[in-house]
Every structure is written in C-alpha cells, then in structure tokens.
Design a protein around this nucleic acid. Structure first.
Lengths: 352, 352
DNA sequence: CTGAAAGCGCTTACAG
DNA sequence: CTGAAAGCGCTTACAG
C-alpha cells in the first residue's frame, strides 16, 4: 500500500514533508510539493484510517448539480453500476464549493478520500479537466472530447448517425429540412450541426441559414421552433432536432396546432434516454445510451485503480439511429420537382 | 470531537474495546458492543484521519439503484442541494453489496465515513429503516411513513389532493371514473386508491371493482389501461392515474387511437417531476415536488448533525393539484341522468 | 471477554 | 524550507 512512508522514500524526503505537501502547507517548496504529489498520484495513494481504506469514486460536478436532467441522471446511474464490480462507492463532490483556491485538484480529492474521478463537464470547465489530467490524478471525462493525449474521456459520437438521419429525410423526399439545436455551444450540438450541413451538402441541397433554429433546451424552445417553421413561407417539411427536449416540445406543439406528424411535417429527434417513446408518434431519433457512457467510464476507471494501471482512455461510443413513426414522405403538394424518386429506404430499418 | 477515547470514558471501557466494538470484533461481549455503539451514535462519532473529518451524508439504496427513474433522480438532486448548506458530500451506498451480514448498520456506515443517511426504500425494505432507527444512527427515510415514533421520515401526502382530483371530475359531470395504479403495493398508491374510493363514496357513486386497473408502471401499462377502458361497454368517461408513466402512456395511446382528450375522455395524472408538461394536452395532475422532498430531508438531517441535535422528524409535505387541459366535461351523449348540474368549479383554479 | 502496551498512519510543534 | 521527535487517533498482538 502506498503511504506517506513509501512516498517519502520515493521522493527522498521525510514523511513530515510528504504530509505537508499533501495538506498544502505553504511552507513546503513548490518543487518538492509537486514531486510528492506526482508520486502520490503515480502510486495511487489515499489516506487510510487504521487498516481501513475506502474506495471512493468521485462524481465531480464543477458548478451546480444538473442531476435533475434525464441525461445526467442516466449517466450517474450508469456510473453507479460501473463502479459496482470493483466495489467502489460513488461520492458526489462539488468542486466549486469545497476546493480551496490554493490547493491542487489532487490535494482536494485526496482530502475527500477519493481515488479517481468521473467528471461531467460543461464547455466552460474544460480547463479543469485538463488541469486534473496534468496533475496525473486518475480521471475520465464524460461526454466531451479532448485533443490533448493526456486527458481520458468517453463520449458518444453522433456525427455519422446525424448524417444518416438527415439523409434518411432526403431519401424520403424532403429537400427543405430545418435544424434545431440548443443555445449552448457545446461540442455535441456543434458536431450535429456540422453533420447536418455535411449531409445536405453531399446531397446538393444548398445550405439555408434561415432553416437553422437555436433555442434554450426546453419544451417551450421546441414549441417555438415548430411554430416558426410552420409559419415560414416555403416552409421546411422536416425538422432534425439535436436535443431531446426540443423535439418533445415540438411534437407537443404540433398536437396543439392540429398538425399531423409525419403527414404534415416529419420530425427526427435526438434521445439520451427514453423520451422518444413518451410522445405520439414515437420519435425517429438519433439515440445515445447515457447509462452506457457512465457505466463504461466508471468500470474502466475503477478497474485501472484496482489493478494499479494507468492508461489514457479516449473512447467514442457510436450513437444509434432508430426509425419510428415521426418520419414519412413530405406532403404531396410540397414535394419539390427534381427530387430523385424511388430512393432505397431499406437501409433504414426500424430498430428495436 | 467524539473519539474512541471519549467513547471509552463514557462507556467505562478501554479504547481497545471501543475500537473492537466499532469494528465488529467477535470477541467483544454483545452487551458491551451495543453500549459502545449506542454511545457512538449519541455522540455523533466518525473516524477521523489525523485532524481531518469528512462530512458524508449517505444516500442509501437497499438493492439495485433506481436512479434512472425521474423520481429518484429528482430526489437525489434535492438531497445534493439540501446537503450543500452544511457542506456535506453525498455518498451513494449500496447496503446489499457491502454490508457484512454480522455487522450492524451503524458499524457499516461508520466504516464508510458516513455521519447520517437518507434512505430511499421500498416496501420490502421497511424493516431496514426500522433497524437503523433502532440503533440510533441518524437517518431520515424518504417517501414512506412509519408508525414507530423512532423513525424519521418525510413524505408527500397525496390523499387530500387525490380526493380533490376525483371530486373535480365529479364536479365536471363524470360519474364513471376509472382508477389506474401500478402493481407494486406501495403506500403512496394504496393511499391514492383509498382516496379514490373515499371521494366516490362521499358523492354517492357506487364503487365498481371493474373500473380499477393495475399495471406495471410503464408507458405500455398506461396504454393497456386506456385500451381496456375505451373498449368497455358503459365505459368510464374519465381516468385518474396514481402513477406518472401510466398517465403518459395512456395519453400516447389515446393519440394513436385518435381519441381526443378531454373531449372523449378526461385524464388526471400524478406527477413527481415535469412529465405532465411533456404531453399534449398538458395533464391535469396531482403533483409532488420530489426535489423538495430530498432537499428538506437532507437539509434538516445535516443541520441536526452539525448542531449535534437529535430529533425524530415525521414530516408530510402536501401535494398540490394542478388543473390543466386534459380534463373537461364528459361527452354529452354519455352524461348520466341524475348528475348534479351547475357545479361550482371556481374552487379548482388552474395553477401555475 | 478485556486491557496495557506496542505499533501504524498521519500531523504538528519545535529546532535549525 | 526541512526533519527528528512528540503526539493523536486508531488498531492489534500479547497477556491474562
């Protein structure tokens, strides 16, 4: 077991100095401190009470908890299941509240008895992930990607399926396809937007800025987009939403306006959880298994901790595309001339 | 601070014996063990590493985690926010996995560095809550009620609003009102069933067993109930669901069958979260703020821990009843004679 | 079944 | 800025 004693030996200092470095005593030389912490990380140190060592996996949120959102809830559920095999407990930790400004992430986590962390981050807190990785503390980031070879992450790759979704609409005969996403510029949504553009470009449909809609990720946002789309002249015959709540809100609004899906308009959603099944018609959607992301992250990380391995994981789990009932041919009077007919739809079989 | 030393003094034994009792050494006399653990609980003991004491609030699940369910996710989110004020971290702990058969709950929690627990329980694990309370470990149970004066709990009381919901339907002119609930006999659902019976009884409507439907709490279960109701001869004109997913599933099925809500049938749901807003029409529902339950539980418990108070909390937070768009008068050709006309509906104002 | 004493992991007051 | 030594909280081998 790693202990102040073993670290002291490796660092060539006394246990006094190790203890000070771990507890952020300002007297200790920054170089020494850094060397000690690096060794602590390399050797998988956690403080122990007598012979007892707790195996806590930190689930870190950088600001407010967003657990009430279905995605985060599903992710955490997966983390819990993933941490089970190596008998880790999951400690929910708020970085913003408790981390002292002058202490390192490693010091903070060790103080909480945490051996490794799963980080759920927003775009603005990416630098935190990079800092934790830089320190060498065992970590994996959920649902983001990093170019740095030091940062472990696991995320869903929705690019291919987003292209597929848009091309499915094109194959059904749609030419004017709107794109709805939320107003936070996170990577997922930007990826899907890029995929949307790529798909229409590949199919010689000119990109039209006026078909792109950004709203807050709420039911109301989705409703707004639907209303805006339906009131356009030369309106789109289909909408691809990059966000679950937007899609559900649009469907709800369509019912309220007596607009038939897919007869009047086709809708493709994005789904992290099971929301696509909660509405009528069940949504054709690009789907991501949020629970699987959390599970995989927690299982891989805790296995490495138990085996004292250290490896950078950069994993992308592809999404899947499910055809359900919210998509069909565009209204006959709205089919543009020049649409290629008799497209092959057999490649898009209904999943599940 | 409570320590092995202070406990030893109070118990009149050596610190050796205290340590053994805490760690479940079989050599220690059961009476002694019990006395030591009782004092540990009374004095709010947690093991410390050097000067460091972590303040962990345990979120205990007794078997599988059910965090993926919206109710549990909302509750946990509330717990997290409630634990914030006293700077507690929340540790997710699986009793089934880690608790050794011969150790007490107190020993288990102390081993994990937990100072108090919020328990989310099912009917079958009620005895666990009673056992924890019996040991005197700081605890509060979520969403259950106990007659024992030793068990702290906080739950939503949906009885009054369930009666109100059914009477609202009656005031709208409904006489044949179906009741749908899930197949697990938990207290919440049994309460709502009792309230349903009480409401119709109070209004001189005979109870009809054939209008009571039990299904698994899934969208499919709700769909099944709707189909069964619509195919009955002399069918009900309204359904009161005691479960969120059942109500949503019924609405979805109604859309699929082209049944108009509320023109063809009125639906009242039960909502723990925001599901009532996700469908069209927005559901009239008896609502419970799951986040508030968790918040209140965690805040009260952590405050008591910080102030070294000990008090049994038995709190019922009333639900609220929101009238939205899924309820209206029964179809004209289905109004039974003898319905009192011109009922006063102003008491049921649309909330929000 | 219990305790005095040795020991372990960690922290800290003291000395330099 | 660092370490030897004392000390704290806890555990455990030994003795009874």
């Amino acid at each position: 077991m790693s202990s102040v004693r073993s670290i002291a030996k490796l660092a060539g200092v006394s246990i006094t100095t190790v203890s000070r470095a771990l507890n952020n005593d300002p007297a200790v030389n920054p170089k020494t401190r850094e060397r000690v912490l690096a060794i602590a990380n390399r050797s998988g140190y956690v403080a122990s009470v007598g012979r007892r060592v707790n195996s806590n996996l930190g689930f870190v949120y950088t600001d407010e908890s967003t657990l009430a959102h279905p995605f985060d809830a599903a992710v955490l559920d997966g983390v819990l299941r993933g941490a089970d095999e190596q008998r880790f407990d999951v400690l929910l930790t708020n970085l913003k509240r408790d981390k002292r400004p002058d202490e390192s992430y490693t010091q903070f986590f060790l103080r909480k008895g945490i051996r490794g962390v799963v980080v759920r981050t927003m775009r603005e807190s990416r630098f935190i992930c990079e800092a934790i990785a830089e320190e060498g503390f065992p970590m994996i980031v959920l649902s983001e990607r990093f170019s740095s070879p030091k940062v472990s992450y696991i995320d869903g790759d929705s690019r291919a399926d987003s292209i597929r979704a848009v091309e499915y609409l094109i194959a059904l005969g749609h030419r004017r396809i709107a794109f709805g996403f939320h107003s936070i510029p996170d990577r997922d949504h930007m990826d899907r937007f890029a995929a949307y553009k790529e798909a229409i470009d590949k199919n010689n449909i000119p990109f039209d800025e006026s078909l792109v809609f950004r709203q807050r990720y709420t039911l109301a946002g989705g409703a707004t987009i639907l209303k805006m789309v339906m009131s356009m002249k030369g309106r789109p015959t289909a909408i691809f939403f990059a966000d679950p709540l937007l899609a559900v809100g649009a469907v709800k609004q369509a019912h309220a306006l007596n607009i038939a899906i897919p007869e009047d308009i086709s809708i493709i959603g994005f789904d992290d959880t099971d929301l696509r099944y909660g509405v009528h018609p069940t949504l054709t959607a690009v789907c991501q298994d949020a629970g699987a992301l959390g599970f995989e992250a927690a299982q891989r990380l805790t296995r490495m901790l138990t085996n004292r391995e250290k490896e950078v994981l950069q994993i992308s789990i592809p999404t899947f595309f499910e055809v359900h009932e919210s998509t069909g041919a565009p209204p006959v009077n709205m089919v543009e001339t020049g649409t290629k007919d008799a497209a092959d739809l057999t490649q898009y079989k209904t999943a599940v």
